[in-house]
């Protein structure tokens, strides 16, 4: 049991310090790394969301910057390309006044044969505080936590997790629907290879949503049912009473592979069009973690329609990443 500090102190108890905060602290965030949503409790998820809500206000100011992480250094350690995620993390760190270093595997000593451990230890020796890592190998961020004293944020590891994207999606649902528990959420696409699907699934499940994973038979592993998801190969049936549908991006390299139907067949079976939306709930929330392939996962009409939260997800991405950077750096303060 976590102890909750009661601010309604009785008269006989010792005096609290003069600057004791109110409502302090229902949940204290103590993690120094964000590796996945699977290991987070419902209280921890909620703590991140409440922190992110406070950060949303900063993005509405004319001076969009606070000094919270002044003097801290954040390193983007990307072994896979991702312009958008990198930009979002960079801007989030800059809004907190941190300095940002960019590392790209292609131009680096990795091509000269340096090991991951040596790369990390060398950068750490320059005096940095947080690593944001994207790597094609699942577990690479976990390995890095054992090589360094810095905070580590997983920005996508193989087919394992992409926790900040999961947080962004769930935060956006929470914002639009006012709750998560009891919602029916459908995730559509290449479930088997998607770290976004996994992070969404773990977080949504923890918060009490009912998750249905939909896609071609070859790309929706039945194993997810053991973890508590429903699986389906019939999008229309799954959408019938859905509150939210999250359309995953189709990787072009898979389209030519054996496990993937033709593009035309995919669009016919799993593409979200205006026509397919008939018979769904009028307030069905339509999401996509981006970048979208117009005419594949979503028709343009749907992507730009009133039920779409695609651009809101991008804006919320900043608030979520600011919250995560802030919480991890705060937690490492005492160590």
């Amino acid at each position: 049991m976590k102890t909750t500090r009661n601010t309604k102190t009785t008269k006989s108890s010792p005096l609290p310090a003069a600057h004791t905060d109110l409502g302090k602290p229902e949940v204290v965030w103590t993690r120094r790394h964000l590796l996945g949503l699977e290991e987070l409790s419902g209280e921890e998820l909620e703590h991140i969301f409440r922190t992110a809500e406070s950060f949303q206000e900063i993005s509405t100011r004319s001076i969009k910057k606070v000094p919270a992480l002044r003097g801290r250094v954040v390193v983007n350690l990307f072994f896979e390309d991702s312009t958008r995620t990198r930009m979002s993390f960079t801007l989030a760190a800059q809004r907190l006044s941190a300095d940002v270093l960019d590392f790209s595997a292609g131009k680096s000593s990795v091509t000269k044969g340096e090991t991951l451990r040596d790369t990390v230890r060398n950068i750490e020796a320059m005096g940095v505080d947080t690593f944001i890592i994207r790597h094609s190998a699942a577990g690479a961020p976990h390995y890095i936590t054992r090589c360094t004293d810095c905070n580590v944020i997983n920005a996508g590891d193989g087919q394992h997790e992409h926790p900040t994207q999961g947080l962004i999606d769930i935060f956006t649902i929470r914002e639009r629907k006012g709750r998560i528990a009891g919602l029916k959420v459908v995730i559509v696409g290449d479930i088997a290879h998607s770290r976004v699907a996994r992070s969404n699934f773990w977080g949504l499940k923890r918060l009490g949503a009912e998750v249905t994973l939909v896609g071609p038979t070859t790309l929706v592993p039945r194993a997810f049912e053991k973890m508590g998801a429903k699986t389906s190969y019939d999008l229309d049936a799954a959408l019938k009473d859905a509150d939210v549908v999250n359309m995953l991006r189709i990787q072009h390299e898979r389209i030519s592979s054996q496990v993937f139907p033709s593009r035309e067949e995919y669009v016919r079976l799993f593409g979200l069009t205006q026509e397919r939306l008939r018979g769904t709930k009028p307030d069905l929330l339509i999401m996509h973690p981006g970048p979208i392939n117009r005419g594949v996962e979503l028709s343009s009409e749907v992507a730009d329609g009133p039920n779409s939260s695609i651009l809101r997800q991008v804006s919320n991405g900043l608030a979520i990443r600011m919250a995560v950077l802030f919480l991890l750096n705060q937690a490492s303060g005492k160590n």
């Binding site: 409502g23 949940v27 922190t51 406070s54 919270a68 802030f326 303060g333 005492k334």
Partner: peptide, 14 residues
Amino acid sequence: LAERGPQAVLRKTD
């Protein structure tokens, strides 16, 4: 920030 360690939830400036 460095001395205080984990804190109560940050709230909105309003």
